[in-house]
Computed example of a mutant assay.
Amino acid sequence: MLKKEMYMAAGDGCHPIVKIISEIRKAVKENAPLIHCITNPISIHDCANVVLAAGARPMMAEHPEEVAEITVTAGALALNLGNITDARKASILIAGKTAMEHDIPVIVDMVGIGCSHFRKNIIREFLDQRVKGARLILKGNMSELMALALEHHDVSGVDVAPEDILSKDHAEEGIRLAKDVAKKYHAVVLASGATDLVTDGEKVYMIHNGSEMMAKITGTGCMLNVLTAAYMSSGFILEGAVAACVVLGISGEIASERCSGTGSFQTEFLDALFSMTDTQIEEKIRGQVS
């Protein structure tokens, strides 16, 4: 099914997505959009720095009485269910509805919806207030996507269950699930993992960039969420998600070559993201599209 490599294309040797990624990155750096992030305190510092490294401006406001006012000034909204509180729940719903009413693109990271009915109900409430035509990305690992799609699929903790990991043995099953979710909710789906899957229900991207070191620090999934929001602000939704997966994955690869441990990995990771060139993306991108 997935036969065409991203970097293989007739004529110039590059898949068109490489050029689109370049356009997205350039637009963010030139326009410096405000990215409103309602995330969790575990990774909030790293998320803010990732947005800055991409060339955008982070705003981490989460009080229910101010989020609507701030959201309307943003280029994109990033929501995250990690470490959920009553106030953060209210803010997610208020900001999400405000963004959709004002045609501001939204990405929601469905952290832990397979291990808590409370979190799953927040997502259902969020989707129930969906505005027709709103630009939306639903992000999660494969266990979280299954929890959204199926009535009964529970896991322990926020990590993907081993049996749900996207692999060659059941790639088709994972792709089918992601496409079904995308079609059902009229959204782009970003299934993160060792291989990232991005689909709008029709086109499917599989991104193979990344490093095992990324799993040894906390918050890389949250960082992917806010980086996607930054790139969504360019107006590219599907491609913005692909760009974020590629750029973050390559940053991890570069950092793992330069670091001596998890501490230096974090520094090298941010440096790689900040200084990444189009040439590095062209040389290192690995993935398939169908």
Score class of each variant (00 low, 15 high):
Thr228His: 00
Ser290Ile: 06
Thr228Trp: 11
Ser192Ile: 08
Gly157Gln: 10
Asn225Arg: 08
Tyr205Thr: 00
Leu197Lys: 05
Ser233Leu: 14
Ala134Met: 03
Val28Gln: 07
Ala68Glu: 15
Lys89Cys: 12
Pro33Gly: 10
Glu65Ser: 11
Ile44Ala: 02
Glu257His: 15
Ala61Leu: 12
Ser167Cys: 13
Tyr231Gly: 02
Cys222Val: 07
Asp12Arg: 09
Glu66Ile: 11
Leu34Thr: 13
Tyr205Gly: 07
Ser290Cys: 09
Gly287Leu: 04
Pro105Gln: 07
Lys216Phe: 05
Ser290Gly: 13
Gly157Glu: 10
Val188Leu: 04
Gly13Ala: 04
Thr277His: 13
Met59Phe: 08
Lys26Leu: 12
Asp200Phe: 10
Asp103Gly: 01
Met1Tyr: 11
Ala99Met: 05
Ile250Tyr: 05
Thr277Phe: 14
Lys3Glu: 13
Ser234Ile: 09
His102Tyr: 14
Leu127Cys: 00
Pro162Asn: 11
Val72Tyr: 01
Arg88Ile: 11
Arg57Phe: 14
Ala182Met: 08
Ile42Asn: 08
Met60Pro: 09
Pro16Glu: 07
Ser116Gln: 13
Met60Asn: 08
Cys47Leu: 06
Ala255Lys: 00
Tyr185Gly: 06
Ile281Gly: 02
Ile92Gln: 10
His15Ala: 09
Leu177Gly: 11
Asp159Phe: 12
Glu65Cys: 10
Asn40Asp: 07
His45Gln: 07
Ala74Phe: 03
Gly210Asp: 12
Glu173Met: 14
Ala9Glu: 05
Ser275Trp: 07
Leu227Gly: 01
Val28Trp: 05
Ala76Asn: 04
Met146Leu: 13
Val155Gln: 00
Ala243Phe: 01
Gly210Pro: 08
Thr195Asn: 14
Asp46Leu: 00
Ala78Lys: 07
Val111Gly: 02
Ala182Lys: 01
Asp86Thr: 05
Gly221Phe: 02
Thr73Lys: 13
